[in-house]
């Protein structure tokens, strides 16, 4: 029994030594821009494969009321400090307007009632946070595609940038999706959750639901939609708050 013990101890010693070197090395490799670029390029295979495999129209799974989470976790921003927002919150968003602009023929300035008057889509879907947890909830609102059709897209438009009322870590939250997801059947501007108006914690008065992507894409406190041909000019240029600040993937389908 002593012989294997000695080898094991030696192995552990060598392992510990190698490990500390590896850790230092790994973080240096992790920080190298060339390595990062290569990894991101290889990883992009997933986006290309998913887009090819699932197509433009495949629907996210929809659930029955019995499948819903008893409590839907509110994450990220749950409170908006902006005084104008707080004033609107106090009066039921009576003076709130959704602005639609950028590369459109007819810029829009829509009150909540106009969004509620559009044909509604209601869906019970699973919200998957990038952290790993999931919650199932019911969302209702007009399809983003219907709102965009009202505004009329210019041919150069490629992305929808979603502007939000909240600051997170002192920076404005925003997100963006491409037109494939913007016109997807389940992509809605939800003003209702679980049968009632959205609460502040879940993004009142309006929240994007883009059901085939992760939670950080589901922007809360939506104030405006801006059509653009490039994401480079917005904030950090990577198409979203978490994309800019932490380097999360712009395509949140993985």
């Amino acid at each position: 029994m002593s012989a294997p013990d000695v080898t094991r101890r030696r192995l552990l010693g060598a392992g510990a030594l190698g490990l500390s070197g590896l850790i230092a090395g790994c973080d240096r490799i992790n920080a190298a821009p060339g390595v990062r670029g290569l990894l991101e390029q290889v990883g992009d295979v997933h986006r290309v494969a998913q887009r090819a495999l699932i197509g433009r129209t495949a629907l996210a799974k929809e659930f029955a009321p019995a499948d819903m989470s008893p409590i839907f976790r509110a994450n990220g921003s749950t409170h908006v400090a902006d005084p104008a927002y707080r004033a609107e919150l106090g009066r039921g968003f009576a003076g709130w307007r959704l602005k639609v602009g950028g590369l459109v023929h007819r810029p829009l300035d829509l009150p909540l009632s106009a969004l509620q008057a559009l044909p509604q889509r209601s869906q019970i879907t699973r919200h998957d946070c990038v952290e790993g947890w999931s919650a199932i909830g019911k969302w209702q609102g007009p399809r983003m595609g219907a709102v965009l059709a009202q505004a009329g897209l210019m041919p150069a438009a490629r992305y929808v940038v979603i502007h939000c009322a909240d600051l997170y870590g002192g920076r404005p939250y925003y997100e963006s999706i491409d037109l494939i997801d913007a016109f997807h059947e389940q992509t809605i501007l939800a003003w209702q959750m679980n049968g009632g108006p959205l609460t502040e914690a879940h993004g009142a008065p309006l929240r994007l639901r883009v059901e085939r992507q992760l939670g950080y894409k589901q922007a809360k406190y939506v104030m405006g939609l801006e059509l653009t041909d490039s994401l480079a000019g917005f904030f950090g240029g990577k198409g979203g708050y978490w994309e800019d600040v932490r380097g999360y993937q712009w395509y949140g389908g993985i």
Binding site: Q50, I54, A60, K61, R212, I254
Partner: peptide, 8 residues
Amino acid sequence: SPGLDAGL
């Protein structure tokens, strides 16, 4: 993957 779940 929420994307793959939609297709598969």
